[in-house]
Design a protein around this nucleic acid. Structure first.
Lengths: 241, 241
DNA sequence: TAAATAGTGTCTGTAAGACAGTATACT
DNA sequence: AGTATACTGTCTTACAGACACTATTTA
C-alpha cells in the first residue's frame, strides 16, 4: 500500500473511507429546516438520486483538518462563513457505504436563513431546505437518517438549557423573536415572563436600540455579546430529559 | 488505488489513516485515574517510548464498527467487557501523526477499578494507571493530551448533572461511597443532605441490603436500576457552567 | 461512654411557571 | 377608542445549599 507524507513505514492495512457530513439548520418561515442535497443520478454512485446530508470525502490535499473540511463544505453549499458549528459525532462501520468500510465525521451548523435575493447558492434541484420533521421521515442515503436524528435530538436537548437558538436569528433581534425561535425548535409554547427573566438574567445579550415595529408597541432589540459560544442556563426549561 | 469490498468505483483520493483511542477512567485509591500505554521504543514508530492513550488503527477485517473497535481495545487492555462507554468526539488533521493525514475516533470509558489479584491484564511497563491530573500534565504522543483534556472536561461537566460517577463503583455501594466519588471527580466537598436528597429523588438506585460496616453505623447499599444510561438531574450541582 | 459513621429536619435562596396586569405603538 | 404587541409584577413550586440535629454501630 502506498505511503503518504513521511518516511514512517505503515502497516499494510486497508484504510476505511473518510468523509465529513454537515447538518445545516436554519429558520425559514417560522420552521426549523435542514439542507439536503441530492445524490448524483449516476447508477455507478451509491444511493443515486436520493436525498442526503451535504458532505463528502476529506480531501487530504485541500483540507488541513476535519473542521476545515466541514467549513469548506458548508461554505460551498450556503456561502456562509461564520456559522455556529459544532461536532456532532462520528459514525463508521463496514456496511454504511456500499463502497466499503467507511467513516463519517458529522458536524452541525446553525445559520441565519439566507436572504432570498442574495447571491448565495440558491436552493436548486440538487439542494433544498426541508422542515426538520419532514426530513426526519424521509429515506436518506447512507445512515444519514440516523445522523440527522441525532442532530435534531442534540439540538432540541441543548435548546432546553442553552442560548443556541440565538444563532439562528439575524442580529439584532427582539426577545419575542427569540422566544418564537425557542418555541419553533422545541415545538411547544413557553411562558413570556419566565422566558424574558431567564434570557436577561443570563446576561449574554446587549441592547441594540428599538425596532421600528410594524404594528403594536416597539420592542427592544438585542445582539449576542459573545458569538463564540452559547450560554448555559442554570436549569433546564422543563424538568427531566 | 485499491478498491475494497464492492464494484463501486472510487475516486482516487488518498485516504487518511483511521484510528480509535479510548480514555479509560477508573477510581483507584480515592483518585480518578486514567490508563496510559507506552508507545513502542522502535524509532521507526512515531513518538517512540512516549505515553499515549490506548488505541490504534481500525482493523477493517476484524472490527465491524468504530464502537466494536473501541470495545475490542478496551477489553485487550483491561479485560473489561461491560463498561460505560460513550463517544467523546473525533480529531483529524494533516499534522497530528507524522505518518500522514490521520483521524481518530475517541471514546471514553468508566470502569470499576480492577480487583488487584484478578487475572486481568496487569499494569506493566507498557501500561499504567495515572491520576488524571498527573496525566494531564504529561507530554503525550500525538494530540492525546488534548483528547485527554477534553475527556476530563466532559466527565467533570457531566458529573455536575448526571449519575455518571456511579459507573466507577462496584455494586452494591453506599451513598457515602457515591458521594466520595463525586467529590473525588470534581475535586470539592459536597453537602451530605443535599447530595442524598438529590440521589434518592432521582430514583435511579434500588436498595440492596445493609453493608457490614467496618466501623460506625451500617449503611444502606444500592444498585443502579438501569445500567444502560446515566440519569440526568434537574439542575446542576453548582450554578454556572 | 466516646468516637465514628449514617442519616434527617429545617431554613434559606434562586430560578422557573402560571397568570394577571400595565405600557406603548398603530389604525 | 380599540387592537395588537411589548413588557412587568406577584404568587407559587421545585430543588440545591447550609447546618444543626438524631441514629446506630464498634472500641
Amino acid at each position: 500500500m502506498k505511503k503518504i507524507g513521511s518516511a514512517f513505514p505503515l502497516a499494510t492495512f486497508d484504510r476505511p473511507l473518510v468523509t465529513v457530513d454537515v447538518v445545516i439548520f436554519a429558520l425559514r418561515n417560522d420552521t426549523l429546516t435542514v439542507l439536503l442535497v441530492r445524490r448524483p443520478a449516476d447508477p455507478q454512485d451509491p444511493f443515486p438520486g436520493q436525498w442526503a446530508l451535504p458532505g463528502g470525502f476529506v480531501d487530504v490535499q485541500q483540507d488541513s483538518s476535519l473542521l476545515a473540511c466541514a467549513v469548506r463544505k458548508l461554505k460551498a453549499k450556503t456561502g456562509v462563513t461564520t456559522p455556529y458549528l459544532e461536532q456532532l459525532g462520528s459514525w463508521g462501520d463496514e456496511s454504511r457505504d456500499p463502497r466499503g468500510w467507511s467513516t463519517t465525521h458529522a458536524y452541525f451548523a446553525l445559520i441565519q436563513a439566507p436572504e432570498v435575493d442574495a447571491q448565495t447558492p440558491a436552493p436548486s434541484l440538487e439542494s433544498q431546505w426541508f422542515p426538520a420533521d419532514d426530513a426526519l421521515r424521509k429515506r436518506l442515503a447512507f445512515d444519514h437518517r440516523q445522523i440527522l436524528s441525532a442532530a435534531v435530538a442534540r439540538l432540541r436537548s441543548k435548546v432546553e438549557y442553552t442560548s443556541l437558538p440565538a444563532f439562528l436569528l439575524r442580529e439584532p433581534f427582539t426577545l419575542p423573536q427569540l422566544q418564537k425561535t425557542y418555541e419553533v425548535v422545541l415545538g411547544r409554547a413557553m411562558d413570556k415572563s419566565a422566558f424574558r427573566k431567564r434570557m436577561l438574567d443570563a446576561n449574554f445579550l446587549e441592547e441594540s436600540g428599538m425596532t421600528d415595529g410594524v404594528q403594536g408597541r416597539v420592542a427592544m432589540s438585542y445582539r449576542i455579546k459573545d458569538r463564540e459560544l452559547p450560554t448555559t442556563f442554570p436549569r433546564m426549561f422543563k424538568s427531566g430529559e
